[in-house]
Every structure is written in C-alpha cells, then in structure tokens.
C-alpha cells in the first residue's frame, strides 16, 4: 500500500491560517490502513484545529467527511455537493487525493494534510517499511523476492557494497543491508551462482525517469 505520515501541525495550521470554514476529507484506502488519514484521524485533526483556533479567539468551522477512495472519480463524485462551501478542503489522502480533487473541482482549493512517503507495509504494529520503488520493471525474482532497487540505499544490482557491516547499511544502523540478506539467503540455499551472473544496467524508462507515467488497459478503455 501507499504509506504516508501526517504533516506537522504547524504546517497544516499555516495552510488554513486565512480560512474560516474548512472540510477535512479522509480516505478509506491506504491511509486508513496506515492510520494516517481515515475517519479517526480526520476527527482528531478537526478537533485539534478547532481548539487551536479557539485559543486564538478566532473560530474555525471544521466539517469532517471520509470517502471510500480519493483516487477514483466515482467516489470523488460524492463530494460534489460539499465543495464550493469551504475556504479550503484539507485532504488526508495520499498525494493522489488532493490532485484528483483539484482536477474535478477546479474552483475549490485543496490542501494536503499528509506527506506521502513510500510503497510498503507494516512490519510490526505502528512501523511501516518500504518494499517497492515503483520502477516499472520488477526484478525481485532474481533476488529471492527482495528488491535491491527499493531497499539498497544505492539501488545496487551487484551488492553488497563495502559499507555493509553487521547486516546493516552504511547510512544507518537502523537500516538493514538488503544485499546482506540476499547473499546470505542465496548461500544458505546453495544458489550463490545466481548472483555471479552480471545484470545489465537497468532501463529506467519504465520508472519515473521516463517522465510521468500512464497505464492504459485497452480492454477496459471505453
């Protein structure tokens, strides 16, 4: 899923500084799963903003709403009657949400309340880790299901580099060296030979480097 973190409160407050009436719009997709932008978080942010403004002696009217997904025109349609009534709509979806909303309702201002970080999953309660870089050409089958593009700090295809120590990456003791894991697994399995064949340079055109991407499924296009 797409993982995100809520922006610092000060930044959100600065965005809505000149507003008197806002809607905080949550999303029931990935940001609900990673506990950052679902109905619960919408409610918390709304309360915080109301209280903060009340302390300043300037009331902020905050409405709350959470829709199924903000990355789908079908669900975005549901806010049609609400937009236009607010000085701003604060989206708690990933970066896709406020953009889809802006495109659908150009007269309404939309602000992002979260920083979208990566594609990953929860490795323990409250901890999410990156697993995919969305490079557009998956190669994890060469590496026993581990992605060096997303999980090696240098995206090396022939690791581990000289900075690997105690199974950790040179950039931080908090970061696992994925190449250490790949090599150890291959050695355990007796498949070290798999790693000795050189890999050609990656074709980054399928990644973001090739420009903004679009996926067209002809059979679904009407």
């Amino acid at each position: 899923m797409i993982v995100a973190n809520r922006k610092p409160l000060a930044e959100i407050r600065e965005m809505v500084e000149n507003c008197d009436k806002i809607l905080i719009l949550g999303c029931k997709g990935c940001v609900t799963v990673c506990n950052v932008g679902g109905a619960r978080e919408v409610s918390i942010l709304a309360s915080i903003l109301r209280i903060a403004r009340k302390k300043e002696g300037r009331l902020l009217h905050v409405d709350e709403m959470t829709i199924e997904r903000q990355c789908d025109p079908e669900y975005i349609e549901q806010v049609k009657d609400r937009v236009g009534q607010y000085d701003a709509v604060v989206s708690m979806a990933c970066g896709v949400g406020p953009q889809f909303l802006s495109e659908a309702y150009p007269a309404q201002r939309f602000f992002p309340a979260v920083n979208t970080t990566f594609f990953g999953g929860a490795i323990q309660h409250g901890v999410w880790a990156e697993r995919c870089a969305g490079c557009g050409t998956c190669i994890i089958h060469y590496f026993d299901g581990m992605c060096p593009i997303a999980r090696c700090s240098k995206s090396l295809l022939h690791g581990p580099c000289g900075g690997s120590a105690n199974g950790k990456c040179e950039i931080s003791k908090e970061v696992d060296c994925i190449w250490d894991k790949i090599v150890r697994k291959k050695m355990e399995e007796g498949h070290l030979k798999d790693l000795l064949d050189p890999k050609p340079p990656k074709d980054w055109r399928t990644a973001r480097d090739g420009g903004p991407r679009k996926s067209v499924r002809e059979e679904l296009v009407q």
């Binding site: 700090s153 240098k154 995206s155 090396l156 295809l157 022939h158 690791g159 580099c161 900075g163 040179e170 950039i171 931080s172 050189p198 890999k199 050609p200 340079p201 990656k202 980054w204």
Partner: peptide, 28 residues
Amino acid sequence: LSGDHQTFGNHPQAKNVYDIDSMQLISL
C-alpha cells in the same frame, strides 16, 4: 566506484543518482 552514500557528506539533501553501479561502470 559506487561511492559513499550522500548522507555521509556535506549535502545530505542531495538527490542520489546510482543510474548504474560500480560493476556496470567497470563493464562500461
């Protein structure tokens, strides 16, 4: 060489490149 990661240096905000790695650089 692959090179030390930029987090070590004096411009840790930099975008890293690593278009190819040291093995591929040798071949090139």
